[in-house]
Design a protein around this nucleic acid. Structure first.
Length: 340
DNA sequence: AGCTAAGAACCATGTGACCC
DNA sequence: GGGTCACATGGTTCTTAGCT
């Protein structure tokens, strides 16, 4: 069946119809009114069940992970509606108990006593015309980080931006285009480009950084029997900077650091030797590759830029770090991203 | 049915030529 | 000097088929 994927409702209607035909599941779309979330009702359930509709095109692993994270915070019953869920993705969704329907007739609904899991149906036309959004790919994350930390950088030539962000020139135009499309950049003239919605952009950066960039930059995890070795270490002498809890401690003095994160261009061999750091898969000392190439005031404290400290604290998902993250944000990040 | 491996298909990115 | 684009490359993801 040809799907008019330009229309969200067409996608929803097609999915409801096809899933109904293939599995007998009786669903109805409900439009509650302007401004309210679209709902989908599961008919014939013992108690009427309504799901908030989450329409996502071109599903991938990250989309599923982000949706799962969101639902962990806000458990409003939500049904994913998409063009095609392949068998692997279907399994991921089922394991996370996220109900879905797609336009190929695949579905997962677990609303006892109703249980339907249908997978393996192929769409007639595979959704391959994915619009490439590079904003939150590694390259995009590097450039956005540079832009958020260096106010006014967006007005500089692409070549300079590429250099500061440590990315290829060719990538800058793509990312600037995505920023414009996403409503994060206005450009009356090239010389007056201006970043807007910085708060929202920062939130998205923090959300995407751990899985999409940080994960790829981990140089190794280490452990040592030396206690509080980091306290008197002149880390800058090893061409490295503290991140995470130690950096947060230096900014706020509110924490007894347990885990150690440090950023460096390459693994500092002498530091490992001096402190008997041994490489182990789950060590509490993590060395991450430095990915930015600009100066910032907090460098004097031998720490990474505060936005990165904040992101690392959030990434731990540790309740102990949540309040500290908020302090770092309020006192050291917020002023960088105020709208001017 | 579930697992695994191999190959295909797709995607992100850097490079450098070209144009304004 | 500055921006755009085609292309090559390397990596990731998906599909398929064979095996248990």
């Amino acid at each position: 069946m040809q799907v008019n994927t330009a229309q969200p409702n067409a996608l929803l209607d097609t999915a409801i119809q096809l899933v109904g035909e293939r599995t007998g599941l009786d669903l109805t779309a409900i439009e509650p009114g302007p401004g309210a979330d679209l709902l989908i009702r599961l008919n014939k359930a013992p108690t009427p069940t309504a799901y908030r509709v989450e329409i996502k095109r071109y599903l991938n692993k990250q989309t599923v992970a982000l949706l799962a994270a969101r639902l962990a915070e806000d458990p409003t019953p939500t049904m994913l509606v998409t063009d095609y869920v392949n068998p692997q993705q279907a399994d991921r969704l089922r394991r996370r108990n996220i109900p879905f329907i797609d336009t190929a007739g695949n579905t997962y609904v677990n609303e006892p006593p109703i249980y339907v899991f249908a997978t393996g149906n192929k769409p007639d036309i595979l959704p391959t015309a994915k619009p490439r959004v590079r904003l939150f790919q590694p390259t995009g994350l590097k450039l956005i980080f540079a832009l958020l930390n260096q106010p006014g950088l967006e007005q500089k030539p692409y070549r300079q931006q590429a250099e500061v962000a440590g990315i290829a020139l060719g990538g800058v135009a793509w990312i600037m285009g995505d920023l414009r499309d996403g409503g994060y950049l206005i450009e009356p003239t090239p010389k007056t480009r201006r970043l807007i919605n910085k708060r929202a952009l920062t939130d998205l950066w923090v959300e995407n950084y751990p899985a999409r960039l940080r994960e790829k930059l981990i140089l190794g995890r280490y452990t040592t029997t030396h206690d509080r070795w980091w306290q008197d270490t002149d880390i800058a002498a090893h061409r490295a900077y503290w991140g995470g809890e130690i950096a947060a401690d230096r900014l706020t003095h509110y924490l007894k650091p347990q885990d150690v994160t440090l950023y460096a261009d390459k693994v500092p061999a002498t530091l490992l030797l001096e402190n008997r750091l041994q490489k182990v898969p789950d060590g509490n000392v993590e060395i991450v590759k430095q990915f930015w190439h600009f100066d910032y005031p907090e460098k004097a404290l031998q720490i990474v830029p505060p936005l990165l400290v904040y992101a690392d604290l959030i990434a731990t998902g540790d309740a102990r770090n949540a309040e500290l993250a908020r302090m770092v944000y309020d006192e050291h990040v917020a002023r960088h991203i105020r709208e001017d």
